[in-house]
């Protein structure tokens, strides 16, 4: 459904995206991950037809994203990374305006979405909080039931409850057979919704994998506290666990999913006073991938 071939788009600064190749099948949800400035939004600009590529092509539903942008928009939903609505409109005026611009009339799904995200679109958008604006952006992107959705960090500014609602929405859209490309900073969100993941860094795709593999290879950090920290550290070391840091009476261990059982059994010989999972930031995950990349070179 979405097909990107040798896509290169350079900015005068020398940044940009270089020779990207990927495709998203119909009904597939693709996560698009990468640090800030890696080229996620640039890729999305090419897909929306906002910029003409220097080289290569981007196509949606077999239509070229630059030459057929208007045609493509008929069945496309888009959430911009930085949402800016038209000046001086109220929320419901904006929704009506978007329906008119798209020449769509059915507002049943719009109503459902507004309820789902508990958004009251009355009042000037300018006065909306960041979260409300984001919700309005979500409703706008989904309300006309498009076949393809391109979402640039769709949950930024949402509270955890609403992030979960969004995950539910994505899953139900996926069940309807929608094709979705979603850039994100939140690994958990991608983990819950996406089939496959692309990871981009410095304008190049450094990894493409399915989420299951990603989860298995993904190491997690565990923090263990015990009365006898030195013997625990020694025991873990002799079992070839990767030890991060040792503070006072706590030790940090990095374990991939299939070694968790071994960790627990090794630790069972000690009096554990505290057991915690270290929150993994996306950065940790990136570091892991980039680390692997470096090693494999």
């Amino acid at each position: 459904m979405i097909e990107v071939k040798n896509l290169t788009m350079k900015y005068p600064s020398g940044k940009g995206i270089f020779d990207l190749n990927f495709f998203v099948n119909q009904g597939e949800v693709m996560g698009y991950l990468g640090p800030n400035g890696a080229g996620k939004t640039t890729t999305i600009r090419a897909l929306l037809g906002f910029m003409k590529p220097n080289n290569g092509t981007a196509a949606i539903g077999g239509m070229d994203c630059w030459y057929k942008a208007t045609e493509i928009q008929k069945a496309l939903g888009y959430i911009p990374g930085e949402i800016n609505f038209l000046d001086g409109m109220s929320g419901d005026e904006f929704l009506k305006f978007m329906h008119d611009m798209r020449k769509t009339k059915d507002i049943s799904f719009q109503k459902q979405l507004l309820e789902m995200f508990e958004l009251n679109p009355k009042g000037k958008i300018k006065k909306f909080s960041k979260g409300m604006k984001q919700k309005l952006g979500i409703v706008t992107a989904f309300m006309h039931n498009p076949d393809v959705l391109i979402l640039d960090e769709p949950t930024s500014g949402l509270d955890p409850l609403m992030q979960n609602r969004f995950v539910d929405l994505l899953l139900s859209e996926k069940a309807k057979g929608k094709t979705i490309l979603m850039s994100s900073h939140m690994f958990e969100e991608v983990e819950k919704t996406c089939d496959n993941v692309l990871i981009i860094k410095d304008g190049r795709i450094v990894k493409q994998s399915d989420v299951q593999t990603l989860k298995i290879t993904q190491r997690k950090g565990y923090i263990l506290k015990t009365t006898d920290i030195n013997s625990l550290a020694q025991a873990l070391q002799s079992e070839n666990f990767e030890i991060g840091s040792i503070h006072n009476n706590s030790v940090e261990v990095f374990v991939s999913a299939h070694n968790v059982d071994r960790l627990i059994k090794t630790a069972a010989n000690f009096t554990i006073t505290h057991f915690d999972i270290k929150v993994q930031t996306l950065e940790d995950i990136f570091m892991q991938f980039y680390g692997q990349e470096e090693k494999s070179r």
Binding site: L48, Y78, N84, D87, R102, T140
Partner: peptide, 14 residues
Amino acid sequence: NGSISYLLSTPNSR
């Protein structure tokens, strides 16, 4: 201010 992205994400040409 980027608000034109909303106009261009509808089936209306530039």
